[in-house]
Design a protein around this nucleic acid. Structure first.
Length: 545
RNA sequence: GGCUCCUUGGUCAAGUGGUUAAGACUCCGCCCUCUCACGGCGGCUACAGGGGUUCGAAUCCCCUAGGAGUCACCA
């Protein structure tokens, strides 16, 4: 068959030669060892943790080496495209501090290797498709969906391998005349790769994370161009990452099984293969078993979850880094004040078994992260979150900045800082009792204190209270009250001989605590009294009498 | 079903032929003049199973099991 004729028949409108694009997109002029990476999300309107996970890897690899990190929009599937998805993606990446050096933006392209929207690269792909046809390595396939479905059924029944290959590849050996005829009749077709791979061969592939891999060679005549002339992922990936001079392809494990397809394409086109870095899928615990995080079941897979819950982006970074590089946690413990960018990230230190997203651990990491944050910054970020998600509390929160910073700072400045603040959503829960407007009685009084004793405790507390007492002077008075009413001054004494006392000083303190704070658990009571002021304190206790 | 990847405590994990098999999170106990939190100390819990190779194996090889991914004109 005359392949040149076929190429002209299929791609008569393509007048560029491959060399044209090779010179249009020359090798990047970068220092030795600089890495070029990218993310290539589909604009489906859902930005998930995996996107960020891979973005962080790509960003680190590029920026640590003086290379380039870019964004390419993989919009080859018009059916799944959602309006506003690119905007959403850009905003999410920006929120999490992912900076692109070039690539797609809302206004179009930024960089010399564009277009960065795949649909706009149609002619480029077709140029290389034409070249493959010329070389006899690609052919049009007119098989209908029904025929493909029937083929699959038959393969399943006969326990054959699925797919379009060998004797199943009906269109592989169509003559030029047959092809001309079908096209003239307006039959739709896709362009398939004429694979020369052998099902029994293995192909070696180097993976930056996993090392040398032995995979089954591709023997399938996979689709290069869909019937609308738009490439499949496989073809687009190979053409784009070659022309955009990507050195490291970071992508999810789900691509591992099709990597031989990509290797075969790179090889036959005579291009150097990038270094693939196949990352693990993110898992979570579901009852007794691990499973992949699912978009439908797991809200924490969506990136906006963290924003809504008020987790800071830094914490998400910190946590993902601990998952990504096993030595990160150690580094962070030794360098609590350094910027995350100073850590040397390596693909070799990445784990290869499915990492489980552990909310408990994430919370702990978030706490550590917030602990390193100055109070004024916490104030700003908490305020910004409240403004968006809790307008009522936002009003109180921002009424007096000095006051609010003081209550945020309770227990943070001393030798033993509080570490229980995890996210901004906790603001109300942690701080509401400092404001009369949001003060409520959440907890009941201790059960083992009679109503009579309760009154007595509160009365004596008010009678002996002196706002000028220091913390220990203040506590001494509570001890006195406890002793007078026969509550053990030392909790241990009560534990040892419960029959000798009505309770312990813990109960007495908690009566006062519930009256003043409304709960059994709170930071230091003396400090709270001094923050809300004597009048407010007396007022609250008085209402309980 | 084919192909492939993965498998150290509840979880994340160090570990590359000789270790008392680190560390972190969780949980439990004790201590820190009251609760909470923080901190300190201590504890529970692991090399998936079976065969080899070797003086010696978590580490190398094989088999089995389990988990995961993929087998689209989706990415």
């Amino acid at each position: 068959m005359d392949y040149n004729k076929l190429a002209e028949l299929l791609f008569g409108h393509i007048d560029k030669e491959p060399e044209y694009y090779e010179t249009l997109y020359p090798k990047r002029n970068l220092p030795e060892g600089a890495k070029v990476t990218r993310i290539g999300p589909s604009p489906t309107g859902f930005v998930h943790l995996g996107n960020l996970y891979n973005a962080i890897i790509g960003e680190r690899l590029a920026h640590q080496s003086g290379g380039v990190f870019y964004l390419r929009i993989e919009d080859t599937d018009a059916k799944r495209e959602v309006e506003g998805a690119v905007e959403l993606l850009l905003s999410a990446m920006d929120y999490f501090g992912i900076r692109f050096d070039e690539g797609a933006t809302l206004d179009g392209d930024n960089g010399a290797y564009g277009p960065y929207y795949q649909r706009q690269r149609k002619e480029i792909y077709q140029c290389f498709a034409k070249e493959l046809v010329r070389r006899g390595l690609a052919y049009p396939c007119f098989c209908s969906e029904e025929r493909l479905f029937a083929m699959r059924e038959e393969q399943m029944a006969g326990k054959d391998n699925f797919g379009y290959y060998g004797k199943w590849a009906l269109c592989r050996d169509l003559s030029l005349e047959e092809i001309e005829e079908k096209i003239k009749n307006g039959e739709e077709y896709v362009l398939r790769f004429r694979s020369f791979g052998d099902i029994d061969n293995t192909v070696e592939l180097f993976d930056g994370i996993r090392g040398m891999l032995k995979l089954q060679e591709n023997y399938q005549d996979f689709v290069l161009l869909k019937s609308d002339g738009i490439p499949t992922y496989h073809f687009a990936h190979v053409v784009d990452d070659h022309l955009m001079r990507t050195t490291h392809v970071v992508r999810g494990e789900e691509w591992l099984s099709t990597a031989p397809i990509h290797a075969q394409l790179f090889d036959t086109l005579g291009w150097q293969r990038p270094i693939y870095c196949h990352t693990t899928v993110l898992m979570k615990m579901d009852g007794e078993t691990k499973r992949k995080l699912s978009k439908r079941k797991d809200p924490e897979l969506g990136l906006n979850y963290y924003r809504q819950e008020g987790y800071v982006p830094e914490a998400v970074w910190e946590y993902l880094m601990t998952l990504l590089n096993s030595n990160y946690e150690e580094w962070r413990a030794e360098n609590p004040d350094k910027e995350i960018g100073e850590f040397l990230f390596t693909t070799e230190k990445m784990g290869i078994s499915g990492a489980l997203f552990d909310m408990m651990k994430f919370d702990s990491v978030s706490q550590e992260t917030l602990l390193r944050m100055p109070v004024s910054e916490i104030y700003d970020k908490m305020a910004a979150w409240l403004k968006e998600y809790d307008a009522e509390f936002y009003e109180l929160f921002t009424r007096d900045r000095a006051f609010t910073e003081r209550i945020i700072g309770v227990g943070r400045d001393g030798a033993r800082p509080r570490k229980d603040l995890t996210n901004w959503k906790q603001a109300r829960q942690f701080l509401s009792f400092y404001f009369d407007e949001t003060f409520v009685k959440d907890d009941p009084y201790p059960e083992n204190v009679s109503a009579e004793d309760r009154k007595e405790i509160l009365n004596r507390y008010l009678a002996t209270y002196d706002h000028n007492d220091d913390n220990s002077g203040w506590f001494e008075k509570i001890r006195t009250i406890s002793a007078e009413l026969n509550y053990a001054v030392k909790p241990k004494d009560y534990k040892k001989n419960p029959e000798l006392f009505k309770g312990s000083i813990t109960d007495v303190s908690n009566v006062i605590r519930v009256a003043v704070v409304g709960r059994c658990n709170s930071p230091d009571l003396w400090e709270i009294c001094h923050i809300i002021g004597e009048d407010a304190m007396r007022n609250r206790v008085g209402k309980e009498l």
